[in-house]
Each structure stands twice: as C-alpha cells, then as structure tokens.
C-alpha cells in the first residue's frame, strides 16, 4: 500500500498546509497518478494564518463577548444588592424592626414593624389559600385527569401565569374592593392568584418525577387511590412541593401590583383586621416612598428593601441548596 496523501481540495486548507498556489491543481490529467505535488512543509510554524486565523479570531471574540455578558449580569446584581445593603444597613437596627413609622411621614426615625407583620400575614393567608388548591389541581392533572382535561387545566394555569400582575390587582379591586373599603384579605387573595400557577405547575413536575415502579407497587397492593396518594405519591414528592411553595411565598412577598388597589391606604400601626381595613405591607410602603420626595421616607424604604430582599435572597439560596441535595438523592 502506497501512502496516499489526503485529497487537497476537499478539506479546508489553511495554515499548516502549504499555501494554495504551491498546491496541486484540482483537475489533473491522470487521476491515478500519485499526488506527489502535494507537499506538507514541515518547516512551517504550526501557527494559524490567513483564513483560519480570522475564524479563530472571530470565535475568540465571541467567547470574550459571552464572558463579558455574564460579567455584566453578575455586576448588575452586585450593584443592586450593594446599593440596597449600603443604604439599608445604616438604618437597620432592632428598633427599626420593632417600631412603627413616625406619625408624620417626613420625620426621621421610626421603623417598619407593622409592614413586616402585615406582609407576613398577607403572604401566610395567600399561601393557605393557594397551596391546597394548587396541590390538588396538580394531583388532578397527574392522577385523575385524562390527557385532554389535563392539558386544559395546564393551559389555564399557564395563562394565569401570563396575566400581568397589575391586571390581577384590578380584578381583585373589582371583585372585592369596589364599592367597599380596601381590605388586607383582598390583597391576600390577589397574592394567592399569583402563587397558584407557580405552586400547581411545580407540584405537577414533582409528581411526575415519582418513580413509576413505586406507583405500580402501590397499585398492586390494591389499596384505594387516596391511600396511594397519601401514603406514597405525596410523601415522595413532598420535597418538590415544599420547594415550590416556599419559592412562591418568596415571590409573593415581593409583589406590589396585586396589593396596590386592595391594601395600599393603610395607617402606621399593626393591623390584624384583614376584613375591615388595608393591611400595611413592605412592598406598597416602598412604592409609596419612591413616589414621594422625602429623604427620611427613602431611608426607611431602603431599610424595608433590605429586610425584604434579605428574606427573599436567603430563602432562594436555602431552597437552591436544599433542592440540589434532594435532586441528587432522587437521581441516586
């Protein structure tokens, strides 16, 4: 077997190989003649040149742009978090977290305790409404529904997710507030509407992940479906359901738009009368401060932002760590 060098014209020849003018012409009179004219110059340096060099340059530029984009995103996050922490830390103290704001908004001092209590109350009510409905709807999709009805419910949930939050706010206003006074409960229902698709879809994904042989083993035992759900399906999806619920709680705590028309005209004290009056809350408090031009209000709002963002970021990080461990266990 005589060694035949590779056909020169088919592969892109740049750089390492001899420059084109030195190469064999494409059409040869005798196609069977050995390609002796095609030479590899061993003395040439192994550096890309010409066309290949340009291609590599383009590729490296794109790599650099991609890294720069990631850097931009991370620095924006760092900038926002830094601003909130640096402004918020100067006002944050025990008394800031345990006192109410001053009677006159333009005065310094005071705290945000009623807003913290209010946000916690609203979110707790919203979770109590949306979690059972969301989990049951997810169970319906995975355990009871046929293909078509499951798809219909999923579509409805996805569309609910797509409803702008300000529209949810107006809906709640029309449903529960218009003609009456604002009330915290209406705001909580608004938050629940936002949480519902998040919980339902994430729970559905967790339920689908329940191992098939586990389900079949339960069915083989002949127990009722609700026993199977209660004893096997829900416990093995519990991690996923908890993750979904907690994440949606963090999301709801940061929502403003659903509360704007339902729970925004509030006094400065702690209010537990959720059916009679607006419940003070952190997000609307920050929103109002940003609409005003009062530096003491801004200072308190920075403190409120730090408290809220701290809660949300801590929850997110904790859930992420928990979720990674859970997934690792689930996948063996």
């Amino acid at each position: 077997m005589s060694s035949t060098p590779p056909a020169p014209a088919d592969v892109p020849v740049d750089g390492v190989l001899a420059p084109p003018e030195e190469q064999a012409p494409l059409e040869r009179e005798d196609p069977l003649a050995p390609l002796t004219e095609y030479r590899l110059d061993p003395a040439r340096p192994l550096r890309a040149s010409g066309h290949l060099r340009r291609r590599q340059l383009v590729s490296r530029t794109m790599d650099a742009l991609q890294s720069a984009s990631a850097l931009i995103a991370v620095s924006v996050l760092a900038f926002v978090v830094y601003s909130v922490v640096s402004h918020g830390a100067s006002i944050l103290s025990i008394s800031f977290l345990t006192k109410g704001p001053p009677l006159i908004e333009t005065e310094p001092g005071g705290g945000i305790a009623p807003m913290i209590v209010g946000t916690a109350t609203l979110v707790a009510i919203a979770a109590a409404i949306s979690a059972p409905i969301g989990i049951l709807a997810a169970l319906y999709m995975t355990e009871f529904a046929g293909r078509r009805s499951a798809r219909l419910v999923r579509l409805a949930l996805d569309l609910l997710y797509g409803v702008p939050t300000i529209v949810t706010g107006l809906f709640i206003f029309a449903l529960l507030v218009a003609g009456k006074s604002q009330m915290g409960f209406a705001g909580a229902v608004g938050l629940a509407i936002i949480m519902l698709p998040l919980i339902a879809r994430a729970t559905q994904e967790a339920l689908v992940l329940v191992p098939r042989d586990l389900r079949q083993a339960v069915e083989a035992l002949g127990v009722g479906r609700w026993r199977a759900v209660r004893g096997v399906v829900l416990p093995s999806a519990l991690g996923g359901i908890l993750t979904a619920t907690v994440l949606s709680i963090a999301r709801a705590a940061g929502e403003t738009a659903p509360l704007l028309f339902a729970s925004s005209v509030f006094s400065n004290g702690v209010s537990m009368n959720i059916f009679g009056e607006a419940t003070p809350n952190l997000t609307v408090y920050i929103y109002k401060a940003s609409e005003g031009a009062n530096r003491f209000g801004w200072a308190r709002a920075w403190g409120a932002a730090l408290a809220l963002l701290g809660f949300i970021l801590v929850v997110n990080i904790a859930i992420r760590a928990f979720d990674a461990r859970r997934r690792a266990r689930l996948l063996g």
């Binding site: 059972p132 409905i133 969301g134 989990i135 049951l136 709807a137 169970l139 319906y140 999709m141 355990e143 009871f144 529904a145 009805s149 219909l152 419910v153 409805a156 949930l157 569309l159 609910l160 409803v163 529209v167 949810t168 809906f171 029309a174 449903l175 509407i193 519902l196 698709p197 339902a200 127990v223 009722g224 479906r225 609700w226 026993r227 759900v229």
Partner: peptide
Amino acid sequence: DRIGDAVLQALCVIAALLAILLLAAIVYE
C-alpha cells in the same frame, strides 16, 4: 377507601375547575 377515593377525586376536580374558573372570572370581571 371508596369514600376516600371519591372525596379526593372530587376535591381535585374542584381545584382544577377553580383554576379554569378563575381565569374566566378575571376575563369576565
């Protein structure tokens, strides 16, 4: 078992219907 099955199924159906009705109610309202 039989009662439990029926109750669970009914609850699930109600929850799913609620999601659909909610969307319809938002549009309607």
